[in-house]
């Protein structure tokens, strides 16, 4: 039973990570029906941004790992991620807004490869920064990493607190942002009908940039959380995580923010359970990614609108 609960918690924290990234896919898709393939790389950039912030801080602090590093790293990661996402939107996606659907998809692949390679080749060339061609150890921030905490017989990995907490805060923030602010309502309007929204005086371009930025900020949170959880980061981390997060977004119903959260958590739990409870050779960590993608395909067959899905998937 303890083992089961352990795995459940493990799955939930993994799922929270997916959920944070999935929101980025879903927000952008909800507004311009674009699958931003390169979003996984934004997550990776966010992690590297957080790491870089810590490295720069450490030149002053001599490598302190005190808790107050964390908010600074978060801000640093978010800045870099949001900047990348906004530049990407402006120069790669915006000119293609009326192009056939294939064009932005291919562009996204191009950006994805470019960003990965860019980090791999050039990150280490910045003086004082480690070489990014292999995995880089992530700083161990006090309280958020270290020995697992024993809560009523359950051992909880400390990194999990951060990611689950972050998801909670972000979700609440998103709810407030989308429903209670003018910008959020404008976003809803644009996702319903961009042309009419434009006629109503909404700056659609600005809304789209904000959608990209919000997604990127959350991806940066996930990047930092991932660093804390796994203890290292590398330039490839965005590819698989992005793919999983997309699966989560589809699972919940793409275009739906709550769906992304539910989908992320579900995917995380399913993955953890599949790893622990599928007996025989096809269980275990070696197959967990396969099961996640099989789930994606099954969802597309049986419930393409997703678990929560309010949005119609098939666009005429």
């Amino acid at each position: 039973m303890t083992f089961f609960l352990d795995q459940l918690l493990n799955g939930l924290s993994l799922g929270a990570l997916y959920a944070l990234i999935a929101v980025g896919y879903t927000v952008v898709y909800g507004i311009i029906q674009l699958i931003n393939f390169a979003h996984g790389e934004i997550f990776m950039i966010g992690a590297f941004g957080a790491l870089s912030t810590w490295i720069v801080l450490s030149w002053v602090t001599g490598g302190s790992t005190a808790w107050w590093n964390l908010p600074l790293m978060l801000v640093g990661g978010m800045l870099v991620a949001v900047l990348t996402a906004v530049v990407m939107e402006r120069f790669a996606y915006r000119p293609l807004r009326n192009a056939p659907r294939l064009a932005p998809l291919i562009t996204a692949i191009g950006i994805s490869i470019f960003l990965q390679e860019f980090v791999r080749l050039f990150y280490g060339r910045i003086p004082g920064f480690p070489d990014a061609k292999s995995a880089i150890p992530f700083p161990q921030i006090e309280f958020f990493t270290g020995d697992a905490v024993n809560v009523g017989g359950l051992l909880i990995h400390r990194g999990n607190f951060f990611v689950v907490g972050a998801l909670g805060v972000c979700w609440a923030f998103l709810w407030w942002f989308v429903n209670k602010t003018g910008t959020g309502r404008a976003m809803q309007a644009v996702s319903q009908d961009p042309d009419t929204s434009r006629l109503m005086g909404i700056d659609v371009d600005r809304i789209i940039v904000i959608a990209f930025a919000v997604g990127a900020a959350l991806a940066a949170v996930a990047g930092l959380a991932s660093g804390l959880r796994y203890g290292n980061i590398d330039f490839k981390m965005g590819f698989l995580a992005g793919l999983k997060a997309f699966t989560a977004a589809v699972l919940g119903g793409i275009g739906n923010i709550n769906g992304a959260v539910v989908g992320g958590l579900t995917l995380g739990v399913v993955e953890a359970m599949a790893t622990s409870f599928i007996p025989g050779q096809f269980g275990g960590p070696a197959w967990k990614d396969v099961w996640a993608f099989v789930l994606l395909i099954l969802i597309l067959v049986f419930r393409p609108q997703g678990l929560v899905g309010a949005k119609v998937v098939d666009r005429a």
């Binding site: 790669a92 291919i106 562009t107 692949i109 191009g110 950006i111 994805s112 490869i113 470019f114 960003l115 990965q116 390679e117 860019f118 080749l121």
Partner: peptide, 9 residues
């Protein structure tokens, strides 16, 4: 790969 990513964009 860097160049080809850029090239596609």
């Amino acid at each position: 790969m860097l160049l080809f990513g850029l090239l596609m964009v």
